[in-house]
Design a binder for these strands. Structure first.
Lengths: 127, 127
DNA sequence: TACCGTAGTTCCAGAATACCGAACTATTGG
DNA sequence: CCAATAGTTCGGTATTCTGGAACTACGGTA
């Protein structure tokens, strides 16, 4: 059936799921899959941004191995679906909550915004 | 003289928060801070596991720069508190949902697909 | 003052992972 | 068979994670 390896529902771990969703490209993929309630191939689920296909493939693999999506080869393409039931069963309400929250995260996209550098000359100011 | 640099509430990004929480050590820290509703120093908030201090310091920095925790130097120690208000303001319900879900993530794996919600928060106290 | 112990940070290496171009592997259609 | 499509895998480089050793900062004690 599914040609790829997916974790069993009981093996889905919260930290792995959160780490998988903690990436702008990957959460965009998940949001696209959640919006289209049917399976999408990688091109349709990937964001319109200029993401190379090898990088996209990597992101799909992370999502798949985290148990967030399910991937089934169908002809020349891969059909990706959100593992909603498995996620809701293991972490009830989590996925919906994150998808709802992600609406507030749209805006100045990641990378290079000079408004808030994540690293700073740390620690104690002048004593 | 607040000490360390924290992102402004409006600069807290969902993907950064999820990435910060997508680590076993870091979510253990957040759970400890959530359980003890007061500030904890790094030693008290850190998991009992054998995590070196340098690694722990790194994890606290990631949480701080993600906007998850706030760190204030107080004497010889750092007092860490969860930025509950800021997180709830930006992503309402998200933190509670994740903390609730993280109870299901304890242990190596759960046998079978059972919809039993684990409601046994055993140890909760810190001295 | 000096000295000591505690609490964290910083520095430096090595391991692990992320990114992306290029080459490769199916599968479908002409 | 040949070409096009859809993704994967393979390289090198870049970034991050991990942990030991050294360091800074503060409080207490003479």
């Amino acid at each position: 059936m599914s040609g790829y390896l997916h974790p069993a529902p009981g093996d889905i771990r919260l930290t792995t799921v959160l780490a998988a969703l903690g990436d702008p490209v990957r959460i965009a993929i998940v949001r696209a899959l959640a919006a289209a309630e049917i399976g999408l191939n990688c091109s349709a689920a990937g964001p319109i941004e200029n993401v190379p296909r090898s990088t996209l493939s990597h992101h799909f693999r992370v999502l798949r191995e985290a148990g967030v999506i399910s991937m089934v080869k169908k002809g020349v393409e891969n059909i990706n679906t959100l593992r909603r039931a498995d996620l809701d069963d293991r972490f009830p309400g989590l996925l919906d909550q994150i998808l709802r929250s992600s609406c507030a995260d749209l805006g100045p996209d990641s990378a290079g915004a000079s408004t808030s550098p994540p690293e700073a000359p740390a620690a104690s100011a002048a004593p």
